[in-house]
């Protein structure tokens, strides 16, 4: 069991209101990702759920019970920290067993659970090492191990991959997703990386300045962004925005086109421009184009697309793939 409900949760540090009031439902077994630029309050929200910070007002329900005032351990949540927060003076075994020891569990049960977790996480050979002797990925797994032995109602991850190098990050991403499938426990995952959000989440919560901008499945957000912020944040490379004449033609203040939704031509099309930098990746080609109006856009072509710096190019947005936004940035 692991449903979490936030009702009008508000947090202020002194005069500064970090979270002005959030309502959110997280269902049992869901993988929820909080995503947003740094300083958007996503980590604070996670810490409020964890009980590491007090809410200024509002209610937090865990499995229907009011846990707003409960101490962290009473909430039966487990957290994986950005720095992993392993106890450097304890072996891997002791690190993983620590929450069990604190709960006063008998030694043989501790050993059984540690062994089980180590098996799941491929840590069996490292149980007697100290965290300092482990690689970044292994430390990450120990931190997860420490979380799963407690059999929590939900896992909280605070940017857990940001200290890993790019290749390892992709591996760990997959491992955490697999772990979620295996355990089927609720997970809340905080990241600023929209790729992590898109690839891992059942449900994404986009935050900006402490406010929930949109909640939905990854493809929901990709296809139907509620506003310009979400549209720009989700998708990589970012969506291109055009204002002025091009937008006015479509009765909008601004229009947005994703780089992958441009049809490119070296002869004719809707928007004319000049190629600046061309990034040839083989599988894709990314073109940084300066349109004749001066607007800078990025366009993606599948496979190889033979243009170079200074070439003329024409871009045509694909049918039905143009997003329209009003003055306030809301989607039309």
């Amino acid at each position: 069991m692991g449903s979490i409900t936030l009702k009008q949760v508000r947090k202020a540090f002194g005069e500064v209101e970090v979270i002005p009031g959030v309502d959110l439902d997280i269902n049992d077994g869901e993988f929820v990702v909080f995503v947003g630029p740094s300083g958007c309050g996503k980590s604070t929200l996670l810490r409020l759920i964890a009980g590491l910070e007090d809410v200024s007002s509002g209610t937090i329900l865990i499995d229907g019970q009011d846990m707003t005032e409960a101490a962290p351990v009473k909430r039966k949540l487990a957290m994986v920290f950005q720095s992993y927060a392993l106890y450097p003076h304890m072996s891997v075994r002791k690190n993983i067993a620590f929450p069990l020891k604190m709960a006063g569990m008998p030694a043989d049960e501790q050993a059984r659970r540690v062994g089980h977790a180590a098996g799941i996480l491929n840590l069996t050979d490292y149980l007697d090492r100290k965290p300092g002797q482990l690689s970044g990925g292994q430390r990450q797994r120990v931190a997860i191990g420490r979380a799963i032995v407690r059999e929590p109602v939900a896992f909280l991850f605070d940017e857990p991959l940001s200290n890993l190098d790019a290749a390892l990050r992709v591996n760990m991403r997959v491992e955490i997703s697999e772990l979620h499938k295996k355990l089927a426990t609720t997970m809340i995952y905080v990241t600023h990386d929209q790729v992590e959000a898109m690839t891992m989440a059942d449900k994404i919560v986009v935050l900006r300045a402490g406010r929930v901008e949109q909640v939905g499945s990854p493809l929901d957000l990709y296809r139907r962004p509620a506003n310009r912020f979400v549209a720009g944040f989700i998708g990589s490379p970012n969506m291109n925005f055009l204002e002025g004449e091009a937008a006015a033609k479509l009765n909008a203040h601004a229009i947005g086109v994703r780089p992958e939704h441009f049809q490119l031509s070296t002869t004719d099309g809707m928007l004319a421009g000049t190629v600046g930098v061309a990034e040839h990746l083989g599988s894709d080609t990314f073109l940084h184009v300066t349109l004749d109006g001066g607007t800078h856009v990025v366009a993606r072509a599948s496979g190889e697309f033979p243009v170079d710096h200074g070439d003329r190019i024409w871009l045509t947005p694909a049918e039905g793939r143009i997003y329209r936004f009003d003055q306030q940035g809301l989607a039309l």
């Binding site: 101490a71 962290p72 949540l77 604190m102 407690r150």
Partner: peptide
């Protein structure tokens, strides 16, 4: 790092245990 003490708190360590064990 204070995260380590927070981890201990999440792991159910009382203040005494936090100071003594971590």
């Amino acid at each position: 790092p204070s995260e380590i003490l927070e981890a201990a708190r999440m792991d159910g360590a009382s203040l005494k245990n936090e100071i003594v064990h971590v």
